[in-house]
Each structure stands twice: as C-alpha cells, then as structure tokens.
Design a protein around this nucleic acid. Structure first.
Lengths: 242, 242
DNA sequence: TAGTGGTCTAGACCACCTG
DNA sequence: AGGTGGTCTAGACCACTAG
C-alpha cells in the first residue's frame, strides 16, 4: 500500500528504537541495504534521507551512516517538526502518558478577516471556534484554540473534542490525510484568563505555537493557536544542510 | 560546481522572490520545467521538494504546484529551520538590517560534563566560551553563548566576534561547510543578569534556542544557546507530510 | 585504491484531479 | 481521457574518506 521507501524507513527506525543498532553505530552501506531490501539505491536513499531528517541517523559523505544521539529527555514533552505524526497532540502522546481534553468553548461563528486570511476563505464564512484545555495525567498543560471552516466539516461531535483525536476524526471523515503544517513559534506570558484555566501564575512563560494545517488536496482545514506551559514543553528542531 | 538541482531550486526561488510568479500562481508542471532546464524529472523533483520544504511552493497531487503565501511579517526577525543559511545570525540578516555584535566574554575553559556531552568530546577538553550581545540597528536583541572546542579552532580573533560571521570564519578556516543543526526551542523569562545586558525588564519573556552545529564530516564544532527577546523573534517552522 | 555517499539519466507505471 | 505529481528501476559517474 504505502510507498516502499516509507516501509524501509520505518523498518530501520524500528531497528534503531529496538536497539538493534545503537547510538554511534555505523549502519550498513546504501548498497548493502538496497540489496537487502531489494530496491535500487535511489529508493533506498529516499528512505535514508527521511530517516536523517527525522533525526535518527547521520549521513557522512565518504564514511557511512551512523545512528544519532537518542530521542532524549522524556520528562518534557516535545512536539517537533519532523516526525511522522507531529500534528495531533493526542496522537503524539497517547502511548506514553494519559492525555485528556476539557472542552471550554464550541461555537459556530463568522471567520472574520484575520482567521479568514489564514484559512484562505471569505471573512463571512462560518467556522467552528473551539477552545480546549489539554491535560497530561490529569494536569492541565496547555490551551488550544482551533478555527475550522464549516465547509470542511459540517459538525464536530463533542465526544471527539473531549476524548479522541480531532485530526484522526477529520482524516476519517474527509478521507484525506493531513499534508501540511506551517507554524510560527513565539514566547509570551500567560495572561489572567489563560493562567486561570491552567491554574498557574499569571505572568508565567508560555510557548505559543500557531499554524495552519492542510489536507492532501491543499485545502486549509484548521488554524490553531496553542498556549503551552513553558516548563513542560520544548520543541525539537533538526535541520540538514544543502 | 554546485549540484544541478540546487541551481534550479535557487533559480525558481529567485523567480518567486522577484514576483515573476505570484502568490497562488500555478507554476509550470514538472515535465515542462524538466524540459526547460534540460534535466530529467527525477532531478527536477529533487529541486521542487527542497523548494517545498523551504516553504515557497505547495505541491498538490494531480493538480500542480502553486506559489505559497509569502515570507510574511518582516517587522519581526525570524530564524527558521528550512532556509539555506539558517544558522548564522549575521548571515541571515546582513542584507536587511544593520547587525552588530558586542563581545562580553571570551575565555578558554574546560568543557565540563554537560557541554562535553553536547559536543561529543572529553569533559577536560578545552573550549572557547564566548558570550556576545547581538544588536539590530544598534538595539540589543539577544544574547548568545557559544562553546567551541579548541581542537576545532585553536584561536578566534576578537575582530571576528565583533564584526563578522563566526560561521563563515569557521567554514573558511576549516575548509568545511556547515551541515547539521539540532536545536531545542523553549520559552523562559529573562533573569536579572541577562535582562541587564539587553536593557529590558527582568521577567520579560524570552525565546531560548540551544543547539549543536556540525560540519560536513560530522564533527560537532559549536554548542550554542541564544536568549532572544520574545517581542522581536519568532520562529517559522514548516512541515510537509509523508 | 577501495568503499562510501551525492548526483544524474531515460525511461516506466501508478494514483490523483479535472473536465 | 489527459495532465499532474508520486514512486521506482538499472544503470552511470563524481566527490569524499580512509588505510
């Protein structure tokens, strides 16, 4: 079903996560791996480039490919830009900790100019405005505001917002996968309203992440802003040259 | 000299920046562009994938390629993870504003465990510890601490730290290009020491970016932490699925 | 020099979108 | 149906690293 290079990438990723290859180990050469998986070098390279981008290996010209320093500090929750499934909050953490949501607001309103511009729709188009508190092991850690055009999803069951992953719901409902995520990361301070919702001090530092999510067909379906407790969130970012 | 696909990417990037293609425009198909640049589709696709990663175009299966919303808010300075030359501060901004540095500290010290672990060297190896204030149009906007192994660069002229780009100096000195950058982004508050250096209020929000930079041969050469005024810096992050 | 990753060709077939 | 991007093959040559 999926592309061959994705399968290969996942296979090697699992091998690394299972410690079959350890940090600093040299993994087999492209030519060996291509033979093993029975693909051409071009296809294998595609897999390896993705693995590199995701931060699992390092490719060094003339030397070989090496397993990178591990996925580090698990005390803090991270949310990066290069994983398979960055986007949904519950998706990312559901196997590690107990994630839940508390729905604060669910309204149908007109987009207004700013939101409309982000979503590439008309300012008078209807959208769902959703505000949720996210909890990890029952501790509130962030507030997330979402703006979703009614044209994409006519209605959103409250049950989804309370318990399930909104992204999975939308992928299933529309039959399209999530493709794009453009975000802007900023630091700010929690104001009275938001700090009260998280039960923390006003003026605490916040990591604010806002962005637009798009589906495979290029249609924007969600503009979101999340206000994250700075003491619980970091963002890992990796970059590979050229 | 450079790879063909990089040239093509830059050529199209320039065309977009010059408004030869405007936001929302459909650009020619892969097959047309491949013909025009006289390369195969595979090579052309490589160029386009990079261009997509850098946020200039969107590729939509079955439809075509479209110019993405522009590089936006130029009042704030941004520092993202997908550009050609993210890394150096002066590199990124030297054509837009007047960037200068003020050297606060330049010491040769032992790495110590934490820094040594980041740089993958011994804890008793010598490093340069550098603290600089960066100014944009003579306004101090961030503080940057750098930890550079003496084994990579024996000495660093003060003049470089005051005026020039440290990264360019190192690329020239070692004859190797910068390849890697793994960073962690956090939010925090400015303490007394740091706020005094930037002449802002203690307790102001800060965007803290720390990371390791590596050269082409995989050798770590700089662990840095930058403390950025949150009101002047945002980070743009784009992610493309699959 | 032998081995590695980096780039490129000239095809081919598939999956998706639109009229 | 015709055009678009997505994937893949089976080679080839180049650039870099090491002993």
């Amino acid at each position: 079903m999926a592309a061959r290079y994705i399968d290969i990438k996942n296979s090697l990723k699992q091998a690394i996560l299972n410690n079959e290859y350890r940090v600093g180990d040299k993994i087999p050469s492209e030519r060996e791996l291509a033979l093993h998986y029975d693909v051409t070098r071009v296809t294998l390279q595609k897999a390896m480039h993705v693995l590199e981008q995701e931060g699992f290996i390092e490719r060094i010209h003339g030397k070989g490919m090496y397993v990178t320093k591990v996925i580090e500090d698990n005390v803090y929750l991270l949310n990066n830009g290069t994983s398979d499934s960055i986007l949904g909050f519950s998706r990312e953490f559901k196997n590690q900790v107990k994630v839940s949501s508390k729905l604060i607001t669910l309204n149908k309103i007109a987009a207004g100019e700013y939101i409309a511009a982000q979503l590439d729709i008309h300012a008078d188009a209807d959208i769902h405005y959703i505000r949720r508190i996210r909890l990890v092991d029952n501790v509130p850690v962030l507030i997330e505001d979402s703006y979703i055009p009614c044209a994409v999803i006519a209605s959103i069951p409250e049950a989804v917002l309370q318990k399930a992953s909104l992204y999975e719901y939308i992928e299933n409902k529309t039959g399209r996968k999530i493709k794009f995520y453009n975000s802007v990361i900023e630091a700010a301070l929690f104001d009275e309203t938001l700090s009260a919702l998280l039960n923390i001090e006003t003026g605490s530092p916040m990591l604010k992440v806002s962005g637009v999510t798009k589906l495979e067909d290029g249609k924007a379906f969600n503009y979101s802003i999340s206000f994250n407790r700075a003491d619980m969130f970091k963002i890992k970012n990796s970059w590979v040259g050229k």
